[in-house]
Design a protein around this nucleic acid. Sequence first.
DNA 1: ACATACGGGACCTCCCGTTGCT
DNA 2: AGCAACGGGAGGTCCCGTATGT
Lengths: 193, 193, 193, 193
Amino acid sequence: MAETTREKMIETADRLFRSRGYHGTSWRTLVEESRTPWGSVHHHFPGGKEELGVAAMRHGAEVAFSYREHLFDKTGSVPDGIRLWFEKTAEHLERSGWQLGCPIATVALEMVNESEALADASAEMFGVSEENLARRLRTAGLPRARARDLATLIFGAFEGALILARVQRSRQPLLLAGKHFAATVAAELRRPV
Amino acid sequence: MAETTREKMIETADRLFRSRGYHGTSWRTLVEESRTPWGSVHHHFPGGKEELGVAAMRHGAEVAFSYREHLFDKTGSVPDGIRLWFEKTAEHLERSGWQLGCPIATVALEMVNESEALADASAEMFGVSEENLARRLRTAGLPRARARDLATLIFGAFEGALILARVQRSRQPLLLAGKHFAATVAAELRRPV
Amino acid sequence: MAETTREKMIETADRLFRSRGYHGTSWRTLVEESRTPWGSVHHHFPGGKEELGVAAMRHGAEVAFSYREHLFDKTGSVPDGIRLWFEKTAEHLERSGWQLGCPIATVALEMVNESEALADASAEMFGVSEENLARRLRTAGLPRARARDLATLIFGAFEGALILARVQRSRQPLLLAGKHFAATVAAELRRPV
Amino acid sequence: MAETTREKMIETADRLFRSRGYHGTSWRTLVEESRTPWGSVHHHFPGGKEELGVAAMRHGAEVAFSYREHLFDKTGSVPDGIRLWFEKTAEHLERSGWQLGCPIATVALEMVNESEALADASAEMFGVSEENLARRLRTAGLPRARARDLATLIFGAFEGALILARVQRSRQPLLLAGKHFAATVAAELRRPV
DNA sequence: ACATACGGGACCTCCCGTTGCT
DNA sequence: AGCAACGGGAGGTCCCGTATGT
């Protein structure tokens, strides 16, 4: 578990950016929370805070993606995987005191018009997420185009339900959406649209 | 056109907060963009920036709600109203250069753990939006409980699709979601779940 | 007891300036504490805060002087009057929560190099105080020159003891000084220096 | 002459606080007068202006104390030391254009009810001053209790005379007080009270 | 006499980036 | 890798004075 300074910074940044946003998180807070040395900040992130932001967003997204893949692998069934994904997300959100939302969305909304690097990273991560999801749907038997559209639809609904859940401090939006799209996918697998 | 200073500040703040976030928008920028006097901010908003944030969020939400009501009234049909709402939102988003997202979500994600006043206002505005939508669905014939759940589901999907659209600079997520939920509601109205 | 707005402002200003200093007291605080209307500030004090400062200082000094005269009249004996003056001052200081020091000194130290009006008023009030005290000493039998010097000495010691008492939250400095100068004056009255 | 930035700030702050008070001295003025970098203030004084205030007060007090000790050492006689102390203080005050008063009293009067840190530092510095003075009086032959009381009395008179001198732009209050207490101490050393 | 609003400026705090030294 | 200091700038808050109507 010998984490490097850089890794500690990225993980802490991911957590802080998710709960307080990009501008709401200062270097000072970061080094205090992550117990990392002040003087190495510029050494590890020569590109400044923006580079940290991109790294944290990528890190958070990868963790989320691999966790979702793990859930799909576990259930075997894509509809069940979807439902479990929404449910587990709700559970983790509540356990964090409704603080840890999406590693992409919070920073993306703040910075998409301010930083090209962060805008690009956000778009890329969203794209990767949709592709992963689309692959699962294709593998389950949906035609390529439908899988892609449904992935966009479901992932969008996931993001929105996550926001509602966080703001309203309730699992309900995520649970409802998970159930709805599990049913939608199951129905389409039985008789294609 | 006799807009007061306070009104100009609120409208400009709504616009700026939506595109740059709360911390990304300074009083300085606000007074420059709104052509209002710097020295009067504390007079009009004794509660400081937080008070401005709440006022801007409420203003933006009310404008959005009444616009949505107008669309539903215009179409007469609830499924058509839903589709139109998503379509028009996509259109306005693109026209703003993909800048003007949700008047609630951007600030909410940043501030929900930092400011109780903004967290409360966000939750309240989301609640009002869901209630309005639920009322439409009830009026169209859906049972009370189903209308409420479907409203949460649809509004969540709307929020998420709006984020995806903004980040990916594409109308697609909103159009797909609008079409999907128009169909969902139409189906449920024909033969209840 | 129908106090005018102006009077309420002056009395409150005297209290606030004494405990928080000149720059530490804002118009805003003043009108809130004195329950007086914002809009009349400039009407009652066209000379601005400086005019208020001078008025408050004069008011506080006059109250203090007439109270001291009252004590001297009550005791009849000058040495006893001196002791009582120091003792009562200590008592009032403690009762105010060690907040209400000299109505002149606090503002004078802050402003003597910043405002000519306040510097003049401070010097004048200190002068009046010494003269009053000197008159008492002359009347009791001390020669004119000695009375004047002793008044300066005693009043200076009073001011200093008041500061020590306030900062150390103890009556002791005032009680010691009162006792000392009561004895000094009594001795000089018995056999002139 | 290798003064550090921090030292330059403290010395300049001591001078400015003494002549203009705490609130009357801004960081801006400080860095201009001390020729120190604006951007480093928070680095050197993480506790903000309050920390600077405490440091400046302690610095000024220590300089004053060691100067007074030097005077006592030089004269050998305690009564002569007292007189010299008051006289030299009057001289320095006049030379500074009646600007540099007590490094403790000016800030203390303003801040004793506003800042606990400054209130504590003021009380401590006054205490140290009285103790030093009491030690001199004990060493000269006065009994412990009398030395302590006399120290409080004399130091209080010193503070008050300093205020009067500064406001009236006259050495007289300090000279009179010095002479009086030199005589008082001399008399008590000859025949104890 | 009072109220509402204007209006610029200064306040302290804190930010992020950089530099030279260890 | 890390440190301490620098360095300018901007953050939001609040202040004091003024102007315009009742």
